[in-house]
Nucleic acid binder design. Sequence first.
DNA 1: AATAGTTGCACAACCGATTGCGCATTCATA
DNA 2: TATGAATGCGCAATCGGTTGTGCAACTATT
Lengths: 339, 339
Amino acid sequence: MSSESSRKLTIYDLAKLANSSPSTVSAVLNGTWQRRRISRKLAKRILELAEREGYSTNMQARALRRDRSGILGMILPLYDNRYFSSIAQVFEAEARRRGIFTIVSCTNRDPAQEREAARMMLAYRVEHLICTGATDPDAIAEMCSAAGIASLNLDLPGTAAPSVISANREGARRLTDALLDRLEARRADAARVLFIGGRAEDHNTRERIEGFRQAREKRGLATAPTDIVTCDYAAEKAQAALEAYVDREGRLPAAMFVNSTISLEGIVRWLRLGGHDVNDIIMGCFDWDPLAAAFHPRLIMMRQDVPTMIARLFDWIDVPPEDPARRLEVMPEIVGDPM
Amino acid sequence: MSSESSRKLTIYDLAKLANSSPSTVSAVLNGTWQRRRISRKLAKRILELAEREGYSTNMQARALRRDRSGILGMILPLYDNRYFSSIAQVFEAEARRRGIFTIVSCTNRDPAQEREAARMMLAYRVEHLICTGATDPDAIAEMCSAAGIASLNLDLPGTAAPSVISANREGARRLTDALLDRLEARRADAARVLFIGGRAEDHNTRERIEGFRQAREKRGLATAPTDIVTCDYAAEKAQAALEAYVDREGRLPAAMFVNSTISLEGIVRWLRLGGHDVNDIIMGCFDWDPLAAAFHPRLIMMRQDVPTMIARLFDWIDVPPEDPARRLEVMPEIVGDPM
DNA sequence: AATAGTTGCACAACCGATTGCGCATTCATA
DNA sequence: TATGAATGCGCAATCGGTTGTGCAACTATT
């Protein structure tokens, strides 16, 4: 804490102050001093000195020499929903617990930004790159493998790197079951169930649609193409899509499978604006938001198990799977009173 | 893209391939070649070569030599609300536009984590450190100035570094005015207005309380200590605090000034659980969340002007203010039909 | 043809840490 | 007392860029 003289303190300065050598100081500071047979006494003296002078290792120099940055990179579509923000937070927390530094960058579901962010992360020589919800995970996996850096996919799977994702199909089956149970309890027309939100070309949406279809099929219900509206995630798109659906059908759906909280926002807004009671429609959302739950306690939500997903991710950071196309599904949890 | 032979390509490899020297390659790649009088022809050849071979600058080496990392650091309490997540996103977007790399770290409103994150960022030699909503901004500002690194505060002000914050007092006055207008329109008892959420020791909460008080005073209304409950931000705390208030007063408040969406969550949940109609209470929230707005269109919200705040922040990154205690207030915007 | 100025590039010394290697001491053993 | 092993530490090369300096070769000037 003393002598904030002018420039940053280096191991050379410390060596001079301690009447020792830079290599010794280095060994002491990075904990390899026993292996180098530095005496405990000298080590202690140097450590105290470093502490007193407020020394901090220059990570650039260390990274350069070690050829490892000690940084973990993650790219993320957005921060603005509970799922992704929780991914970022849990990821950071676990990394911090391990003393690893993280760099998180959001890329707005835009393939060009994803590539650009990946390029930057590779330039900073991150040790692993986690691609979360990437629109083109394989493109990034290839950039990484060309650079000799391991990459992992999260949330949306790829074929060129191992992937940890939610069990979308099974989760969707369960969510759909819950919706259908409620419809039966209410003796409503189980045909009028609408799946809304997401992208047809995105793996998770496809899986959820398949789960939706299977759950209905099991009860002898057919699913028509008009029952499924993959209008992208944005609130405005969901709003417009619901309006179009109601125009066409002439009435509201009896139940809805909403594919994200962001879509939910548009749907709730449209219902409000039209003077409808949100509670008249049985709603499930494949996502979780506590504020939505507070406002609408009858809303059924699938909460994706972020802590487990991140834990599996770190398992693979520790021990990379041999199969580069390895895929692991983590079961999400249904929240909100199912009946 | 060719020859992903084995190791990462360096300027030495490129120099050999181009029959040139590392210094020339370096100058070409970082754009200083004209100043060094490298011929246009050679520059072009080297650039093409680098492109073809997929060269990427080792940022650690560059940072070490230049003694500047090209990284901007930000610490943040959390990602899980729209205000902070939007700060992170807008900050990143602007930095990306300028070709600057960012590192964002969330520190859970915990002073120890804040210091630890700051220490890491300083070790990575960030060029500026932005402290957002820090519980102890001055401690971090001092760490930074000891390390010779500029720091700025965002959202919560400090005295040791310049601060960009919301105009909390004026915003709170306006929000309170809107609440009181509605109360009058409804001929409800304007005395029963509750300010809830936040921390008494935090600058923003104090300012908002002062604005709340002033707006009421202007209408001849006194504010009692029991009208103000700074129970921290967490949903559970707000829930418990509201319950205690209602127990004591024997009835619900006529209106509420809720100090954050996270507190709002607890309040709405408690009202729902108690079977109350959320619409019976006139509510304002000093924060903004589109999902809440969709569910509760009568809710009045103050949306903090994140784009402007970030723009001012970058103004100060470009040209640091002379006064280290400089403070700038950015006006938030009232959203939701005021009447 | 001699001199001065310009053009075009390469040399080599850094930046701050890490690490293989080797050289003095000291200690144990014969 | 000589010999071998163990102890304790410093030397110097290295990671991959950046940048001050210098030196040819070429052009313009008188």
